[in-house]
Design a protein around this nucleic acid. Structure first.
Length: 282
DNA sequence: ACCAACACCTGGACGC
DNA sequence: TGCGTCCAGGTGTTGG
């Protein structure tokens, strides 16, 4: 998915165009993906858009919210006659594929005729309709650790969570209850910046390495947001301007290390493929 | 208590 | 062409 930078980009885009719209109807051909009662929000107006790590919340004016999790392959596409389309999330199928299409599983129609399509090739994502006050009580959200760009995420916090486990550091970085928002791409990137091998045991890191990793986590997320994530198709043109983070990624799906020229290797760690420079990440 | 394996799903890329 | 296998930006559950 859609890790923190992709969802943040989507949040900013939707803020510009979704606020003020009134929901007419929500339909889905996949009952598993739509949780809660859509009728509760028919006629409600979009008030604000929020994000918790990789989750997106559309806050309505009738005490209800729409909570989205895009998982691995979710994407949102807003079609509105008054401006070119806005799309974000996972880039497969390509975000300029006409909608609705085979992977469209939820459609939110607004009174002004515009539509927000939730596409998800693998159908792991979901949309939950619930009271706004219940959102913060969702166990997954309650258990989220600090996000890399908040003050609660700092070297001493990172030291604390690292010393408690001998898991590979890559695995720890992706645990949402420890650090919220990093997934497979940005954990690879954070470790590249820190010059740390993904398989290193978390509790083996020195203070200097922790400091470097702290900076690496922030750098990875900042760069991701600056480049509008890896998959945005923005509202700028009709074909859109793609998020270009993958063009500047340092480790994820890269071939050669831009720092030392070493070969980027890959390795399965905790069921995920880690990408790293075998030469300068130790 | 931990962690690997599997489960949830589809489809593209590849080898034969 | 077709069929089998592997892989994919996430997370919840299970069973050893």
């Amino acid at each position: 998915m859609p890790e923190l930078p992709e969802v943040e980009t989507l949040k900013e885009g939707l803020k510009k165009f979704l606020i003020g719209k009134v929901i007419k109807e929500i339909t889905s051909d996949r009952p598993k993906m739509l949780i809660g009662d859509p009728k509760q929000v028919f006629g409600a107006q979009v008030k604000e858009i929020a994000r918790y790590a990789k989750l997106l919340e559309v806050i309505l004016d009738n005490q209800y919210s729409l909570l989205f999790h895009l998982k691995l392959t979710g994407q949102l596409v807003l079609i509105d006659d008054s401006h070119p389309k806005l799309a974000g999330g996972h880039a497969v199928p390509p975000l300029n594929t006409p909608v609705p299409n085979k992977s469209t599983h939820i459609t939110i129609s607004f009174e002004d005729g515009s539509r927000l399509y939730f596409n998800d090739l693998r159908q792991f994502g979901w949309l939950k309709i619930l009271k706004t006050e219940e959102v913060a009580k969702e166990p997954f959200i309650q258990n989220l650790g600090p996000e890399p760009l908040t003050k609660d995420f700092n070297p001493s916090y990172l030291t604390e969570i690292c010393k408690k486990t001998s898991k590979p550091i890559k695995t720890l970085l992706m645990e949402q209850d420890k650090i919220a928002g990093l997934g497979n791409i940005y954990s690879d990137e954070a470790l590249w910046w820190a010059k740390i091998h993904p398989k290193r045991k978390a509790n083996s890191l020195s203070l200097e390495e922790i400091e470097a990793l702290y900076k690496g986590c922030k750098k990875a997320i900042e760069e991701g947001i600056a480049h509008k994530g890896s998959s945005l198709l923005s509202y700028v043109t009709i074909e859109g301007e793609r998020g270009n983070f993958l063009h500047v990624a340092k480790a994820y799906q890269q071939k050669e290390c831009s720092r030392c020229g070493g070969k980027i290797s890959s390795l399965k760690i905790g069921g995920r493929t880690a990408h790293f420079c075998g030469n300068c990440q130790r």
